[in-house]
Design a protein around this nucleic acid. Sequence first.
DNA 1: GTTAGCAATCTAATGTGGCGACTGCTAGCA
DNA 2: TGCTAGCAGTCGCCACATTAGATTGCTAAC
Lengths: 373, 373
Amino acid sequence: MGISSRKEKIIEAVVDSYINRCEPVSSADIQKTYLPAVSSATIRNELATLEDMGYLAQPHTSSGRVPTAEAYRLYVEKLMPRRKLSRSELKIIKRYFNRKITELDDILKSTAKVISEITNLTSVAYVQNVEKARIENIKIVKITDSTALIIIVTDHGVIKDAAANIAQNISEEYFTRAGEFVTEVFKGCSIAQAVHSKKIIRDTRKEYEQIFKTVLKILKNHSHEEMVSDIVLEGSAKILEQPEYANLQKAKAMLELLDAKEDLIPVLQNSDDMSLNILISKDNEIKEGMPECAIVTANYAVNGINIGKAGVIGPIRMDYPKVVSVLDYIGKTINLLPEPDRNAKMYNAESQSVEENAGEGEIHADETENETQ
Amino acid sequence: MGISSRKEKIIEAVVDSYINRCEPVSSADIQKTYLPAVSSATIRNELATLEDMGYLAQPHTSSGRVPTAEAYRLYVEKLMPRRKLSRSELKIIKRYFNRKITELDDILKSTAKVISEITNLTSVAYVQNVEKARIENIKIVKITDSTALIIIVTDHGVIKDAAANIAQNISEEYFTRAGEFVTEVFKGCSIAQAVHSKKIIRDTRKEYEQIFKTVLKILKNHSHEEMVSDIVLEGSAKILEQPEYANLQKAKAMLELLDAKEDLIPVLQNSDDMSLNILISKDNEIKEGMPECAIVTANYAVNGINIGKAGVIGPIRMDYPKVVSVLDYIGKTINLLPEPDRNAKMYNAESQSVEENAGEGEIHADETENETQ
DNA sequence: GTTAGCAATCTAATGTGGCGACTGCTAGCA
DNA sequence: TGCTAGCAGTCGCCACATTAGATTGCTAAC
């Protein structure tokens, strides 16, 4: 059944009003603000029809209408106005991204923070899985008498590394050769392939078997959703500002969802690869025990290379036009950032040329740390 | 003014009862459960005195007494009974720590999780700052044409590393020599010292100046509280289970505190170096805007080496005997764990001997990853 | 110093009435 | 056929009063 233009206008009016005021919308409200040309009685008739059609609901007989999830879906797909960011909002975004950002990790956090600040919602950001990265080079370096570092370089510019205890008295050359050997074995494989290929070591190379297994183990651990720590939430407390979570029960359900942030990863990954993704979910629809909520995410890229997703999570009644415009604008901002040293993600390292005769340019370097026994 | 033994018993009774039921305690309650030998009228007299002394308070005239922070302090210092863990609690702890734990990071998370699960409170765990670690060795490895990895080994077994972009056409030997040079400069310094020493490069070594600066920058970033990511919270949602945060205002204040978890680090660090630390704080006492709460932490060590702190954060009315016994037991458990590869903290790497002719023993290795351009 | 008894105090729960906000319906109009 | 004005009916919400129950402080006696 088609929806007349006036019905659409009314749905838009109900959603818009409800988003802003979080109160059931009456026919008089709609007439006053959105449709002065027709009478409230006419609107009442339309409202009754739209309720039958499943777009609206009534908390009780003598109250106004509230939108159903269906209405929100129609709204975001078709009716929603495109909104420009205000000066102050642009200012906030600039404040976050104008300072020197050189680490992916930093982008992740800044993005989450700024989204949360502007939208006043809980935000989520995470770094894309790198299973598909192809291995280019593996180096093994002896760093103490009893420890070696394994460095795996991939075409995503990804380095995976692990320190492993070693027996004493192994020469540096042994590790150099071992590195060349495993490089030879894995070169060109994606991480996923490497893990599943069940490569076998020829007898002649048995001496590297332990190293080989160790490297494989590293890759395996990385090919999973091991990367829990790479999802960042900001502003969990803001959930409580939303009237729908004034009820402690619901607030708790929501906070528990946020607490188990790892569990959000599959949900986020499920979303299409479109630049923008809006998920509106009723109770338990996505996952058992998952409260009614909406998740809006966008894919982010730097210089065209996809680095991850970021967005907001909140009540279904959220200011979609604002959220979408914020995510959109931030996406563009990020894409124009100077490309961060992608080592940064793990090493927290910063791009920096180390040249033999470099000028007085700034030197930035960050790092992760690592304790070894 | 001394406190009679009966007064102490009454304080203990009030705190104990209030901890369990979160309701003002009446004289009759105390008589029934804790002091059947004396009448409620006598207890009422004592209660009035204790209120004058500042240990108890009355929400309103016709209600029972609640403990003040002072009463809690006396309770935890002197009155509190030592509690044994129940079977099921021990079981939970064992479940968490019996599986193969080899990463510091993993310990951190497991500890936080198990504490939160047993105490039903929000837990916090973080890894100790390593400013005092002494530098032993610095290695620089060229890993791609345009990237080098800087590895800093300290006596804490700490390795700090950073990837830095480099100019093309620099030989591997150059980096080896540069590594030897900076090792020579920094060897034996603590990280804090290295950062503040303002070492100067002699003209003859000018060629390493950029590398030198980069290393210094790495150390500097590490000497601060840069290590935000190393604090872990578990069970934030559990805050809402506590009746004192049934009030949305208070719940929000608390959640905002947890949201800004970096700000908790100084608070945790301020605590003494005693194995157990109980901090009971009234509104704004520690920090502006910080809600009334209690923080109980314990220092954790593996094989006698301090690795960090963990504990709970919650309302002042918390089950201290239980919390203390849990923290205590977990401390012992952790100390007996097979020593994890301390690289693990950053590399997520696992202890593993890589021997030329190793047996069929398990091989475990974990890693962090690192993207490079 | 302790206790029984009792009035006083205050909260929390329950009930009541009225107000106001909407709707749905009906009847009339273009 | 579609729109509108008018109005009765429904329901939530708020303020207020009332009641029941819990607990204390005080007094007087032991």
